[in-house]
Design a protein around this nucleic acid. Sequence first.
DNA 1: TAGATTGTTAATCGATTAACAATC
DNA 2: TAGATTGTTAATCGATTAACAATC
Lengths: 217, 217
Amino acid sequence: MKKERISNNVIRRLPMYLRKLDDLIYHGIDRISSGELGKQMGLTPSQIRQDFSYFGEFGQQGYGYRVAELREQMARILGMNKGYTVAIVGVGNLGHALMQNFGFEEQGFRLVAAFDQSSEIIGKVISGVPVYDSDELVDWLKQHPTDIVVLTVPRSIAKSMAETIANCGVRGIWNFTNTELGLDKSDVRVENIHFSDSLLTLGYFLAEQDNSETDKK
Amino acid sequence: MKKERISNNVIRRLPMYLRKLDDLIYHGIDRISSGELGKQMGLTPSQIRQDFSYFGEFGQQGYGYRVAELREQMARILGMNKGYTVAIVGVGNLGHALMQNFGFEEQGFRLVAAFDQSSEIIGKVISGVPVYDSDELVDWLKQHPTDIVVLTVPRSIAKSMAETIANCGVRGIWNFTNTELGLDKSDVRVENIHFSDSLLTLGYFLAEQDNSETDKK
DNA sequence: TAGATTGTTAATCGATTAACAATC
DNA sequence: TAGATTGTTAATCGATTAACAATC
């Protein structure tokens, strides 16, 4: 096990390993080698062993990895057993969808509150989680130390909202607003889900295909 | 302009440039240098010029880049002016949210139809888009050549649905099902939005922070 | 034991950055 | 013109892959 700084590429592969391991467990497979895992995931065995080695020695020579054990290690590394608390800010369609379908619990997170401006929804309880008035957000965060805020507000108020939240001691923001929040000075970690970046990447590949077909003619 | 294969890293930065350029236009800035752009985006000027150079010569020595023109180039590269057609399969909370809030039109895509199994929602029109019965999907796709399918069905039916869709001549799948679709043999491009990967990455950084603080003590 | 497979070190490959001639 | 800034080539840096001794 090394003590180097771990690169982003490695970190982004960890949840992929976790998903794959869950899948293996689901299929009743309790042991796997880096060779077989690499084949199934489209990675080289070297890379897989290299990746794991940043965090410890999880395998056994001549045998491979015990799937359940490796899965637990991944879960631990990803903070899934910490029970980080989560609050959702913005209960529009998307916030609503996350509350009802995402399954924070299965990922090891505890969704404890939601906030919105609309009186239509304030006071309701969605998937066991109460929706409070956004006006109470700052007070609430100060009284209830919260690890992560899911930001699902309209783009127009995203930055100011992020600023406010960052000043309440939140440690991470999961940002769905399709905007860079620009909190550089702050020590709040921001993780973005930029829908449009993703769709446009798909658009790039289709356009590229179109172009190369035109070239051929 | 080079004719090398363009790396994924470069491609993933293109939508970021687009967003930044839109932002600059919004703020009335009509000209920018790679130096200034780099400063604002946290990239080196070298990288920016290198990235652009894969696609053409968009700048002017001694002057920089015309924002509007550069924006149009990025949009073109990303296929935004192709009017790619899109159908949504699965109109649960998430599909619903995408239909109502994502704004396919602004990104240059044409959302033309949605499909679901629930009789509760079949026949409705959401944001001007009709919801049809999933049973009609295959026939409909065969009659209406569609570039992209947004997959927002439950995980349990994700793979079989993807298989079906891939056999109908769709060119790209925008996958929200939190599963690898495993269509390797096919020539359908898959772009994943793995919510849980993203949240777990955030979890990793919080856990890492916790650990390093423990170490200090 | 013999075969398999790990964890790690060294080699290679690819991506980023620096440098600079070209030129607006 | 002089200063600024591009596009591109070369140098550097970092990530991936290969090789292999250790050992289950």
